[in-house]
Design a binder for these strands. Structure first.
Lengths: 214, 214, 214, 214
DNA sequence: TATGAATGAGTTTTCATTCAT
DNA sequence: CATGAATGAAAACTCATTCAT
């Protein structure tokens, strides 16, 4: 009960794993799994190498935690997006696009996407988890919404899944570009502008004549 | 009578480098640079570990050769594409789209794109080379053509560079999908269909009213 | 009751570098740089191969540390010798000669000299350091003292540097002999006796008639 | 009988081994045994790597040939020296000293001495051969001659073996110096002058009073 | 014979993981 | 709990030696 002099800034033990995962995300995103050194992760997290093993049994487990931790927040976002009423398609999209920049800024999807792509063959379970929990649900939801809109006559005929891909791909490419080419001096892509312009393009491209006329 | 047991030594100096690079491409694309073992590359190329060092001084040099070798054929494709007359924009695009599937099938861009993304921080020179020699020229050419078409009144107003990205992104995502999610059981994306449908979508989205009416 | 089996890990950070250098000296002196195996050095030092890399980044650095560490103690000896008053030349030499055996016994110059000679082309910096810091200063000091004595008329005319070499060479040969031929069964050279007899010989050979008469 | 067109400069096959040994001497003297690469020796000898194996079964055998070939000419020199009448000691020495420079220039003792010193532990048989065939006979002969001169009253009392070492050591050191320190910028030692001055010094140091007066 | 591409055993080097403190 | 020195298995790299040509 009575610890003699409680330290002012007590290191919250409960936070350690998260700190480690955050540090690991940076290192893994930069180097990839194999080239990342636990020593660097430990240093970035401000703990000793040994301490990592108090929280994670192996390097792979740290990696899994990183990628899984990357799923959760995005999962929420996707869920939230899907919960929206889908009747006014155009405005829904415009709303999502508005939200995009802050999502990208706060979630470090960039690094995670890079890791998922780069390590998909070394950690198939992770690629699979990402696909099954995130990508596929989001894609189906969009596909479904598009199909529904087609059924209502709002959208043109065409493969709704491919329309969905047409919709999201440029933003994904923007994120990858930022991770890959911007650091080597390429002209950055302004993802917000891209999203805005692309959504309008896409809407013009898929709205049926009737809808377009509206 | 009996084939006198296959020779232990094979002398094929001229072919070896290419064979090694081809083998290395497969392994690197699968595992990434750090996780790839020279022993595996050697085995896949059908040579001994030591033989690799007859042609490449280090593992990094093999990797560089792989990525650089990936530039050349694509460079030709890009050049060829740019050489086309750009006056009839829509048909030019439709022509390129027709060519796409064979390009993707024959060049293993998939693996190379994955490597460039995944190792961009570990081999910035390669990411830069890819950007400077391939991505940036292709992108500027498209941007220029789009801007010209806008000036002629064929295409709507809007940032031509972002339009270009809107155009190519889905195909890129298709390629990445094939590398990342198809191997873990995801439903494949038919890139040819995607391209075809997307180009029409894009054209409808960017053609000016006048043009659209035509 | 029973000593609970010797610990697998020993933590001795402070002592380790010296222990490694000491072990390395033995191995390098025996085999030379290239033929020495890090495994042997590690074993002799009582550590694992990996532990060497906690203290030295490469094999070459271990070697450099060994040779450089060999400079220091000898440097002190040379400095001490040079600090002596040089007016009574004969007695100075006799004093130095008395000190010689313990120097040779305690400093393992033998092995180091052998290494410096054997690896002078592979590690020119080390040969140079040895020359510049040790050999050349000692030789000039002696040359200077001899020249001064000549000027005072105590010693005969003649090249003082060559006189200095005449003076020290036999002791050096004695050291080399011990490293080279004694281990293969040659009759040892008693360096102390050699030094004593040689100094007297040398003095008789260089003292001027007047001095000799005294 | 009738080779159609006899090549003008026929490669004498009989010379090959010697050419290889000569090349190997240079490389071994420079790098030592372990660090010397057969490829370099082959290149220096102007033959292919495989050709070495037509004449020598292993690297060690090349090395042995080099060191043994270094014995022969010196052996002759020593024998010649010993055959001389030893009655006039002083003049004998002066004669030998005159011969020294050409011996040093023509026999590359330098490199061989360095190799024998550096590899004595790795190839004890060679160190032993050198000692038994060359060094020890020469040293005993000198020792014997000195002892005889002492018996005749020409030379002072003292250990004759040590006197012999006193006599030859500076020249040996001169040779080592040339191999070790001259290449890193040290002031060269003029071995001829050294020898001349040292022999006179030595004679003054060992001749008995009576002899000195003579 | 002669070549030099190819081999594979041996060494250096790295780093995830363990454990004495 | 925490540390970081130490381990040792695994990977890159070297080069004497072999052998198809």
């Amino acid at each position: 009960m009575s610890s003699p002099r409680p330290p002012k800034f007590q290191r919250r033990k409960a936070d350690r794993p998260d700190e480690i995962v955050a540090a690991a995300l940076e290192i893994f995103a930069e180097k990839g799994f194999a080239a990342a050194r636990l020593e660097d992760i430990a240093a970035r997290a401000g703990v000793s190498k040994g301490a990592l093993y108090l929280y994670f049994p192996t390097k792979q487990d740290i990696f899994r935690a990183v990628v899984e931790q990357g799923v959760a927040p995005n999962l929420d976002i996707v869920r939230a997006g899907l919960a929206e009423p889908t009747d006014d398609f155009a405005n829904l999209l415009r709303g999502l696009v508005k939200a995009l920049p802050s999502v990208i800024a706060t979630t470090s999807i960039g690094g995670i996407v890079k890791m998922v792509i780069g390590e998909s063959r070394n950690f198939p379970e992770l690629a699979q988890a990402w696909h099954d929990k995130l990508v596929q649900p989001a894609l189906s939801a969009m596909t479904g919404a598009i199909a529904a809109a087609q059924a209502r006559g709002e959208l043109r005929a065409g493969d709704p899944r491919l329309y969905a891909i047409s919709l999201v791909a440029p933003m994904l490419v923007g994120v990858i570009w930022r991770e890959t080419f911007t650091p080597v001096g390429a002209e950055p892509i302004d993802i917000a502008s891209l999203a805005e312009q692309h959504v309008e393009l896409w809407l013009r491209g898929v709205l049926s004549q009737a809808g377009a006329a509206a």
